[in-house]
Nucleic acid binder design. Structure first.
Lengths: 225, 225
DNA sequence: ATGAAAAGTGTTGCATTTACACTTTCTATT
DNA sequence: AATAGAAAGTGTAAATGCAACACTTTTCAT
């Protein structure tokens, strides 16, 4: 067994998670940010975060923190990076692990968000954030963009059923560049895990647009390597 | 200011770094692993790791730990992931951040490695490692492979000057598949940041092979986005 | 009846990637 | 001195993937 001193001669640190919560609305990506009405850094903007508790994994902590703010427990989340510079939190030393989360912006709990004084802010209108949260956002954005080019994580920003126009607008927002409609639809047509539901959405156009859905079974079947 | 209780009501944890140290020899990737002659988990195999100390960033801790074992202070290193499940270390709770490092296997300090009872182990001969170190290795390998397809990080596994055959063998080892010699050389020729030194290596063939070197300035000039 | 607004639909050219085999050079051996 | 062996070095053609491009259909509101 390990001698007791093996651990105890080393310092301990607070551990936190900070969450970069992405939403998609009006053709643009947004982040859910807190206008802090509490200390520390009261009055400034920050990411939603929280301390890791005893017996709680990092993933669980991130999930809890996001659920506290959104009421949603089933979000797509990924760890981005851990920030551990001494002095990154001017109060005490805290190691913080950043996670990004993808939210269908129609689903979050408006009461909870209001209670936390949180707001959806469009990507290009993001204010300066406290500590090293600016850098966390940059890193999370880069990582999410990369993931989106590799697998269809973006789907988690849309409702269960979505039109191809919605999907294209989403990917244009993620990649930050316009996409040719015909080429885009050709590519989607070749992905059998994005399937027509047979239903039609009439709210977004007079003509109506076919609704599609992501079929996780087909995707996992095709992509497990 | 933050009330003192803001921090102090939350638990603290040990923080560690574990390092996946890659080398390249005889056409294969290897890892530098410890056969532990110390507790905990004496007798088992593990990654080189260490606790994060007061006033030391995670990156610094990883750099220190790798230098302790290899004597090398200038290695290419990247953070991979942080592992925080309660119980991942059966002794006490420890949050561990994994880093990978790339070593020119000709350069490390053999005395230090021997003193730590560490050994280079080929990728496909890696034994079961303690705790969650197996998973760390898988994650690091995937991340390093991805990085190698995007930018020439592999160069850090070779000496300053190298032949194109060495470089090709390295990339075959990283990607795990054979590469066509002519296509490979065509691609390298199009990268002006890999430049001929004018020197010739005569140790690896009778004919002799041109030595090349990575020009960081040209690379940064081309790739800064 | 008409106009507006979004949905939907194929083809061609271009660029990139892949497949493929022989010659050159040198030295160690006979 | 001749030769065999071993790795270095070199170009072309086919195929595939990617990018560019414009008009018709449908429906509802006016």
């Amino acid at each position: 067994m390990a001698p007791k001193a093996y651990y105890s001669i080393h310092p301990k640190f607070h551990a936190a998670v900070d969450c970069i919560i992405f939403g998609f609305e009006e053709g643009e990506l947004s982040l859910l940010l807190l206008q802090r009405d509490f200390e520390p850094a009261k009055g400034q903007w920050s990411l939603m975060g929280g301390f890791v508790e005893e017996g709680e994994s990092l993933d669980d902590a991130a999930r809890r923190v996001v659920a506290e703010l959104t009421g949603l427990n089933d979000l797509y989340m990924r760890q981005v990076h851990t920030y551990g510079d001494p002095g990154r939190d001017p109060g005490e030393r805290v190691l913080s692990t950043a996670y990004y989360a993808l939210v269908d912006i129609k689903r979050y709990d408006r009461e909870l968000v209001k209670a936390h004084n949180a707001h959806w802010v469009k990507l290009n209108e993001i204010p300066h954030l406290i500590f090293d949260h600016d850098r966390m956002v940059q890193d999370a954005l880069r990582f999410m963009r990369y993931q989106a080019t590799v697998k269809p994580v973006g789907i988690n920003l849309l409702p269960e059923e979505f039109t191809l126009t919605q999907l294209q607008t989403l990917y244009e927002a993620i990649l930050g560049e316009p996409i040719d409609k015909r080429n885009f639809r050709k590519r989607i047509a070749s992905m059998d895990y994005i399937e027509k539901t047979g239903r039609i959405d009439k709210t977004l156009s007079r003509k109506g647009a076919a609704l599609y859905r992501f079929n996780r079974e087909k995707f996992d079947g095709n992509f497990k390597i």
